[in-house]
Design a protein around this nucleic acid. Structure first.
Lengths: 258, 258
DNA sequence: GAAATAGTGTCTTTTAGACACTATGCA
DNA sequence: TGCATAGTGTCTAAAAGACACTATTTC
């Protein structure tokens, strides 16, 4: 018998099926504490959360109303969770064309009081200025950025505390093991700007000490000096600008960087 | 109004919901081409696949019958995909207590002809001897191991070609960037055994050259020599045995191994 | 002794780490 | 001139890379 005939016999609702499939997005940005002239930035890793409205668009009381949550929403039948995440992010924050990546699935029974709902979690990395025009829409009564240490003091919806803990661990790892820092920085940046980004997730002395890092950045194969181009935005002395190139990154634990 | 009251009003079937949620498992093992006395092993990365039965347990023609597929199955409402993967693996292959890890979600519309079915994919790393008593059960008419290069010549079910490509890329990365090689090796191993595992996924000279790797293994913080303990299973000259310890692994691209 | 695997000796080059010093330009 | 940031000079130690050499055992 053919596959087509087999399909006709197949009863898609024979088994208990999930009550929903959602995408959640942990949007990270890095905020400079203050932006003084001739100062290298002091940065903090922030996470964007929304406050769930008391009522939904049809006026009924919302589930987990008033709690803080990751932006996200139900995935439609004609899209992937990744596409859904991109769409939700654009709708809810106006942010488009951003580095977005899957990092986990949350499917523990009972995680959502509404039923058997599976969440596909993504993280996004967004430079500060891209979030300037964020607005609360739809189910959200507020949109805000919180330093990651502050987030766990909030009343968080569903199992978002777990998801956020995982997201923070993943982004720390990604910042140190890949060139993800690129997404937090302008095209052209100084050593102290890259340093500030990395210091949000590590305190390793190779990065924390200015002299060591200023020297180090010149030997990294995936970063190149922009010949003769300097800026004074971080200091009075004109500072060399760098950019990421496309050199492949290798982080094997068994052999050295090539 | 309370959360409880809001829940009562909530109609879980208001939206179109998925038709199923499955777990798939890419079970990798490493096979030694031949096991001669006093020989270091020559190894190949293999993947375990099942051949889908022509009929299901109730005698009806199966979907994608006769094609090769990753083991897996539908996730129940009272379990996570991870638990489902562990269960299926035990049921289908008799393999228990194995390193199992989520690596991706497959949810592209149309990926499964039966409907809107989301697959949560895992990989497993299993030493050769743990698969000795594998048997075809349930929906599988055959269980077999294939060298990864051979897998893509097979007629694969659903979108399993995509899932397998991702799994292979993930395992290559994990073997080089984490101590995952441990799961392919006995507790105590020689430098040439670890070398053989790593050579299944890289040809870097730092690993391929005997003298270099024999020296290197002694400097790796996460591997320790077992003082005075030797074996002759890989050579006539007694060879030093090593084991993995619990030292943390660091693979930052910005600073050196500590 | 030949063959095969497992190393070590030794030299060169590169990288890492420490810490003092110099460079630039604004107030 | 002082101050703050951005570097460089210089030394030492460790690691990486190359290649010849030695060590142990079986046949």
């Amino acid at each position: 018998m053919s596959n087509e005939q087999a399909l006709k016999q197949y009863d898609v609702k024979k088994y208990r099926t999930p009550d929903g499939y959602t995408s959640d997005i942990a949007v990270f940005t890095i905020l400079s504490d203050k932006t003084e002239a001739f100062k290298p930035p002091a940065m903090k890793l922030n996470l964007m959360l929304i406050k769930r409205s008391m009522t939904d668009s049809e006026g009924r009381t919302n589930i987990e109303a008033g709690k803080w949550a990751l932006p996200g929403g139900f995935v439609g039948e004609t899209e992937t969770a990744f596409q859904s995440a991109q769409r939700e992010l654009k709708e809810e924050t106006g942010v488009d064309r951003i580095h977005l990546e899957h990092f986990g699935v949350y499917d523990k029974p009972g995680r959502d009081p509404r039923g058997w709902i599976i969440s596909n979690a993504h993280y996004a990395i967004v430079p500060e200025h891209r979030l300037a025009d964020r607005v609360a829409q739809d189910d959200a009564s507020e949109v805000a950025l919180f330093p990651v240490e502050e987030v766990f003091k909030l009343d968080l919806a569903f199992d978002h505390e777990t998801i956020i803990r995982d997201a923070v661990a993943v982004i720390r790892k990604k910042l140190l093991e890949t060139t993800a820092a690129k997404a937090f920085l302008p095209e052209e940046f100084t050593y102290s700007e890259l340093q500030a980004v990395l210091l949000t997730v590590t305190d390793d002395t190779a990065i924390a000490l200015d002299a060591a890092f200023a020297r180090k950045i010149k030997t990294l194969p995936f970063i190149e000096e922009i010949a003769g181009k300097k800026t004074t935005r971080t200091s009075k002395k004109p500072t060399q600008l760098y950019r990421f190139n496309d050199a492949p990154v290798n982080s094997s634990i068994y052999y050295a960087k090539k």
